[in-house]
């Protein structure tokens, strides 16, 4: 008979928190700004930091750097997009909150027709940085310490999301394709997480919804013309399920509606499109998380339909000083 004092040692429990923290996909990949993957808005321990590195390969008839997804009929656009950023989790009036900045960069090329003019273009550089702020309004309080994190389960939680893109990305007013958008834009959303069943790594299931509206300022110099864009309503839905403790998958769907663009008084088409996708996530170690996903529009046969497919690989590195310190002590043992 042996008395085990394992449970008295701090590190095993802290390690568990690390796992918890990164399984939740701290700042999981942001897609081409208009879309976010499953588990993006899961909460973690206050004080956690995260740096994402996201690489996307996109094709379609719209500029993936522009969340308005203005469709350019018969366009054929390829893009390689990288997003880097930084996020910090903190409490706000006892609620979980996150502030992040995301910087898109990459290259884009394709053939585009704008108001009867055909462009064959290729650009690269930095896009518009986006500031994001999320605060939970319904759900468990902020995870202020490790016991809170251990006891956390989202249940039914609702956040308030605010995004604001700063129009400082690279922009060439002679080109129809740009990485920067030369206008202010942003998003208001209500990320919803609905826990289905136990909150046990390996068995977690969630239904996640993100109803949001994108709001766009005018681009007064869009190939020498003015582009106005109506608000775009977007609903993302994800049914996610742990496949093992460190491996999860998600069925993804997105519906876009509105976002009618008007260029010099000539109106385009409203979006009314649906995209479907699949995501797999894997926790490589206590700090590093990998996600691979593919998403494609489905009702895209007509020339004016949004057509976009997107293969994405993301790495997210997260850390918390408590966890790192505990690891150093453990390494000394």
């Amino acid at each position: 008979m042996r008395i085990d004092t394992y449970h008295m040692k701090p590190f095993p429990w802290l390690g568990m928190i690390v796992a918890t923290m990164l399984v939740v996909g701290t700042l999981c990949p942001s897609q081409a700004q208009a879309q976010v993957p499953a588990r993006f808005y899961w909460k973690t321990l206050s004080g956690t930091n995260a740096v994402p590195l996201i690489v996307e390969s996109l094709t379609g008839n719209t500029n993936p750097f522009d969340p308005a997804h203005n469709v350019s009929a018969d366009a054929d656009i390829d893009a390689t997009l990288t997003l880097m950023g930084y996020a910090k989790f903190f409490p706000l009036l006892d609620r979980a909150a996150m502030a992040a900045v995301l910087l898109p960069m990459g290259r884009i090329s394709g053939d585009v027709t704008v108001v009867g003019r055909a462009f064959s273009e290729s650009v690269n550089g930095f896009g518009d940085p986006m500031l994001e702020f999320v605060v939970n309004v319904i759900g468990p309080p902020a995870q202020m310490n490790i016991p809170d994190a251990l006891r956390y389960a989202p249940g039914f939680s609702v956040d308030l999301l605010v995004d604001l893109a700063l129009p400082i990305g690279e922009y060439d007013d002679d080109q129809a394709l740009n990485i920067g958008q030369n206008r202010w834009y942003g998003r208001l959303g209500l990320p919803i997480i609905w826990q289905l069943g136990p909150w046990v790594p390996g068995r977690r299931t969630t239904l996640e919804l993100l109803p949001a509206v994108w709001l766009f300022g005018d681009n007064d110099d869009y190939v020498g013309q003015t582009m106005e864009t109506d608000p775009l309503f977007q609903l993302d839905a994800h049914l996610t399920r742990d496949l093992t403790e460190h491996f999860w998958g998600s069925l993804d769907g997105a519906w876009y509606s509105g976002g009618e663009a008007t260029i010099n008084g000539v109106s385009g088409e409203k979006l009314d499109n649906i995209g479907l996708g699949l995501t797999f996530g894997y926790q490589i170690n206590d700090n590093l998380n990998l996600t691979v996903s593919y998403k494609s529009t489905i009702n895209d046969d007509a020339p004016d339909d949004l057509r976009m497919d997107n293969l994405m690989v993301s790495f997210v590195y997260g850390w918390h000083k408590l966890i790192e310190g505990s690891r150093r002590l453990k390494d000394e043992e």
Binding site: K9, P10, I17, I146, P147, L150, R151
Partner: peptide, 19 residues
């Protein structure tokens, strides 16, 4: 004698043992 005074425990083991 082989058990600690809980006063020395960090919040995590307290919470887990408490659970």
């Amino acid at each position: 004698w082989f058990l600690p005074d809980p006063i020395v425990l960090a919040p995590a083991p307290r919470a887990l043992l408490g659970k």
